[in-house]
């Protein structure tokens, strides 16, 4: 979560609210923020740190490990209509790559802004080639997009 704290500025510019969830109490969240997170980020972590002691939230999202009594690393991108656009779940020992989450948010925002008229091929980042789905594009993607040059 410290990576999220350190890159909060970027997320804010994209209009993304961050909600973090663990089984720790609000008190532990406060002290972790004061003792550690605030020293990794520029200032206090400005996201909502949810306390899910009984794992009830984690259970409905399928990321609560009942044996260990903790949440797995689950990350969900939710759009302004409350629809889950992307999710990623990992076991605890490996951390996330925040830049990939940011890339996905930018891509979903682009698709939303064009009402689906433009879609983002593999490896898309802002400024790269988008595709316009339609009958003419069927079988012709190779003419307009190259996995070697445009990826």
């Amino acid at each position: 979560m410290s990576a999220v704290a350190a890159n909060y500025q970027t997320l804010q510019e994209l209009g993304v609210e961050v909600i973090s969830v663990s089984v720790d109490s609000q008190f532990v969240h406060k002290v972790w923020n004061e003792q550690e997170l605030s020293k990794m980020a520029e200032k206090d972590v400005p996201f909502h740190m949810v306390s899910d002691g009984a794992g009830n939230v984690g259970k409905i999202y399928g990321v609560y490990d009942e044996d260990a009594g903790v949440e797995l690393r689950g990350r969900f991108i939710i759009d302004p209509d409350g629809i889950i656009q992307a999710m990623e779940v990992m076991t605890p020992p490996v951390g996330r790559q925040l830049s990939e989450t940011i890339r996905q948010i930018q891509a979903f925002q682009h698709v939303r802004a064009t009402k689906g008229a433009e879609v983002c091929p593999a490896g898309w980042t802002p400024g790269k080639k988008v595709l316009k789905p339609g009958p003419d594009l069927v079988g012709n993607v190779w003419k307009v997009w190259s996995p070697l040059k445009d990826h």
Partner: peptide
């Protein structure tokens, strides 16, 4: 206290993690 539906109209990144003071 927060309610997820209060964030409708905004993009949300919802992140679960094993615990405060863990190492990764």
């Amino acid at each position: 206290s927060i309610k997820l539906s209060d964030f409708l109209g905004q993009w949300v990144m919802l992140c679960f993690y094993p615990g405060d003071f863990t190492f990764v």
